[in-house]
């Protein structure tokens, strides 16, 4: 099990700002109101000063797959779609279990905020930052485990998406000890701090698709990451 503490670098903060602007609905065609820009800048500076994102991960082999799901030492991953992806992977198959968080400071700031605009800005910063943080945590294991061994890996896949029920968070929390980075599960399987991600990825010699969307025929899914038709060379 590996824990990672992240520094918010200048380039990450710049990315965070750009992503937040985009998510708030601003781009080159829609300039930002100076009052809103001021609030955003203040919030980013505050985030840079106070947030200390963390991550924890562990890599375990796939023991078997069957109709129950994907068997690992930590438990069974009960997603038919992800199991189908794993079953199509060749060679040694490893599952990466990950939990990341931006920490509770953002929740505390949000809770104490009366202004709806500031609440929205904090919420958006948190949502964008946790994705960037999780990318960074992935960059801790990818160069050591995936690239040198000529392996491939899928994109991250989280409970609550596709056919993987939110209750299945438990298998990730069995594999890891997210309490070490301050992340807890509520009785409804929601993580606290709120800006946290739990996810898995599959590592193998050949991962034919980066996401289980390849096996899903659902139309108009807002979370679809691959087109419904046949895919080529999509694995990262």
């Amino acid at each position: 099990m590996v824990t990672v503490e992240l520094e918010l670098s200048r380039s990450l903060i710049q990315k965070l700002r750009n992503n937040t602007l985009y998510k708030l609905g601003y781009d080159s065609t829609r300039p930002m109101n100076p009052e809103i820009e001021k609030m955003l800048n203040e919030a980013i500076i505050r985030a840079e000063k106070t947030l200390r994102p963390k991550g924890i991960y562990r890599i375990l082999p796939v023991l078997a797959t069957n109709s129950d799901g994907i068997h690992t030492e930590a438990g069974i991953i009960r997603s038919i779609l992800f199991r189908r992806l794993v079953e199509m992977c060749n060679g040694e198959r490893l599952i990466v279990f990950m939990v990341t968080t931006v920490g509770e400071e953002l929740d505390i700031a949000y809770e104490s905020e009366e202004s709806l605009l500031r609440q929205l800005i904090l919420h958006t910063i948190g949502a964008e930052l946790i994705e960037l943080v999780t990318d960074e945590v992935e960059m801790d294991w990818k160069p050591r485990v995936v690239k040198p061994r000529g392996l491939q890996c899928s994109w991250r896949f989280s409970p609550g998406y596709c056919d993987w029920a939110l209750e299945e968070q438990q298998v990730i929390f069995e594999a890891l000890d997210p309490g070490l980075i301050g992340v807890q599960l509520t009785s409804h399987f929601v993580m606290r701090p709120s800006k946290s991600i739990s996810a898995i990825s599959i590592i193998a010699k050949e991962v034919p698709f980066p996401a289980p969307c390849a096996f899903c025929g659902k139309r108009n899914c807002p979370w679809r990451r691959l087109p419904r038709r046949k895919h080529k060379s999509l694995v990262s």
Binding site: L24, G25, Y26, R30, M32, N33, E35, I36, S115, L116, L117, L120, I121
Partner: peptide
């Protein structure tokens, strides 16, 4: 306008 604009006004 964007959602932030409307929230600024609501505030």
């Amino acid at each position: 306008v964007s959602i932030p604009d409307i929230l600024l006004c609501l505030d």
